[in-house]
């Protein structure tokens, strides 16, 4: 049985919502009743059936609408997808990773036939079919990274490994939480993380970098990151901040449940085989507060987490204006009962 893909929007009338299955699929990020920045990297191994971790690349009911929103973003601003010339080998590595992962996990939707370098790709939900020569860019309608990431949920960055550092030299970034690929492309690991508060001082990035430099092929890792977004908007880029920034002032005690969304990034990293680059995927998930509280454990835990958030982090994540209002709205779902350890619903 295949997925049922919904027709919904992430702008204008904002018709996005989660089905009950999608709510249970949501990668709730808080394993306890508080939050602090941590490296929290774990092996990206298959998780429970129906969870966002079941397959290496997660495709869900929002797939077709996500890809339509990405196409709209790229039409307005082609600089959201950029790649420095030396990354072409890594781009092809990414094509291989995504096509094999998607067709292995979802054979009813995606098919990949390989005969040496002659590849045949079928994407049924998007109605795409191409025969091309692996390694020959002229045989695809787009450059390889752009071609495949126009067909895969999540933002993608390709990190070149040189001189004991990782360099963000390629990316498809259309649904980011307030960072600009166009600005950050070419930066080293610590440079592109420069605006993140608190974490540098406690050595988070030193440890993370050392770990990532030693990543092995076939042993991907993942971590979760999170923020909050007003309205189910995927494109919360700095480029368009002057257009969406006012959203943050539209929250009222009455509309918190529908307007305020928890936005979770499932960040997964793979060592790529022939380029020795690393792919850094940032797969975003949105859930309305009204949807979140349908899982009682999450409804209890969410306000507790928001109350313990250090003010620097709240400011960095842009929550300051509506943090208290959200805590107040959530309070009626927290009966004070203890919560069970771990992120999954009881």
């Amino acid at each position: 049985m295949g997925l049922m893909f919904k027709d919904e929007t992430y702008r204008g009338d904002f018709t996005f919502y989660n089905s009950p299955e999608a709510i249970r699929h949501f990668p709730f990020p808080f394993h306890e009743d508080k939050y602090m920045y941590a490296v929290n990297i774990e092996p990206h191994t298959p998780g429970p059936k129906g969870s966002a971790y079941e397959f290496p690349i997660d495709i869900d009911e929002h797939y077709v609408s996500d890809m339509r929103d990405r196409a709209l973003v790229l039409q307005e601003d082609p600089l959201r997808c950029q790649s420095l010339p030396h990354m072409i080998t890594a781009e092809w590595d990414l094509v291989e990773l995504l096509m094999t992962s998607m067709s292995d996990a979802y054979p009813e939707h995606f098919t990949l036939k390989r005969n040496g370098d002659a590849w045949h790709w079928i994407n049924r939900p998007m109605g795409i079919e191409n025969e091309f020569t692996f390694g020959d860019t002229s045989t695809l309608p787009y450059p390889p990274m752009e071609y495949i990431t126009r067909q895969c949920q999540g933002d993608f960055c390709l990190l070149d490994q040189r001189d004991g550092d990782l360099w963000m030299d390629s990316g498809m970034v259309t649904s980011q939480a307030d960072w600009s690929l166009d600005f950050d492309i070419g930066m080293s690991f610590k440079e592109w993380h420069a605006p993140v508060p608190l974490a540098h001082e406690i050595g988070v990035f030193d440890r993370a970098l050392k770990f990532l430099l030693a990543m092995q092929i076939g042993r991907p890792v993942r971590r979760l990151n999170w923020t909050m977004t007003i309205n189910p908007r995927l494109d919360t880029s700095p480029e368009n901040y002057h257009k969406w920034g006012t959203d943050r002032t539209t929250v009222t005690p009455e509309n918190v449940g529908d307007k305020v969304h928890l936005r979770v990034e499932l960040q997964a990293l793979w060592r790529l085989p022939r380029s020795n680059a690393i792919v850094f995927s940032i797969r975003g998930y949105l859930i309305k507060m009204r949807e979140l509280v349908t899982i009682p454990k999450w409804g209890r835990r969410m306000p507790r987490v928001l109350k313990t958030l250090p003010p620097e982090l709240a400011a960095y994540k842009g929550l300051t204006r509506y943090q208290d209002m959200t805590i107040d709205w959530l309070a009626k779902y927290d009966d004070g009962a203890p919560t069970s350890p771990g992120c999954f619903p009881d």
């Binding site: 930066m187 610590k190 440079e191 592109w192 605006p195 540098h200």
Partner: peptide
Amino acid sequence: MTAAMISRP
């Protein structure tokens, strides 16, 4: 926004 200057050359 804090004034971490890590990306500054």
